[in-house]
């Protein structure tokens, strides 16, 4: 049985009003220590006001080999972008 502390992924919100962003990883025995370690490692220079930690094994991720088929359907739906529609200049900013 491994004695290595589990790996945690760290998410930090830089300032009020922004989303949490993945900033890095660290090892810690539990969530409480992971947050304390994240504070020490990733917010030494005012980088954040809120920390989330998630044990890395609990993250489910899309697979890079699916990249084509997985995201392809949205490529054909160009009408989802505002620039798809021609609005006459006379209408003004929209």
């Amino acid at each position: 049985m491994s004695k290595e502390w589990p790996l945690w992924e760290v998410f930090i919100r830089g300032q009020h009003g922004m989303s949490h962003r993945h900033i890095g990883s660290l090892h810690a025995p539990d969530a409480e220590m992971a947050i304390k370690n994240a504070r020490d490692v990733y917010t030494r220079r005012n980088e954040g006001v809120s920390i989330w930690v998630v044990e890395a094994v609990h993250i489910a991720a899309s697979s890079p080999s699916d990249k084509g088929p997985f995201y392809e359907p949205s490529n054909s739906k160009v009408y989802r972008h505002p620039a798809f529609f021609d609005i006459p200049d006379d209408v003004g900013a929209m």
């Binding site: 491994s2 004695k3 290595e4 790996l7 890095g24 990883s25 660290l26 090892h27 490692v41």
Partner: peptide, 19 residues
């Protein structure tokens, strides 16, 4: 110490453990 940590974590994404 922090720099060491960032780098060990980067190495770990390649399938080796820090220990």
């Amino acid at each position: 110490a922090g720099h060491g940590l960032y780098l060990y974590c980067a190495a770990e994404t390649l399938g080796v453990s820090r220990d």
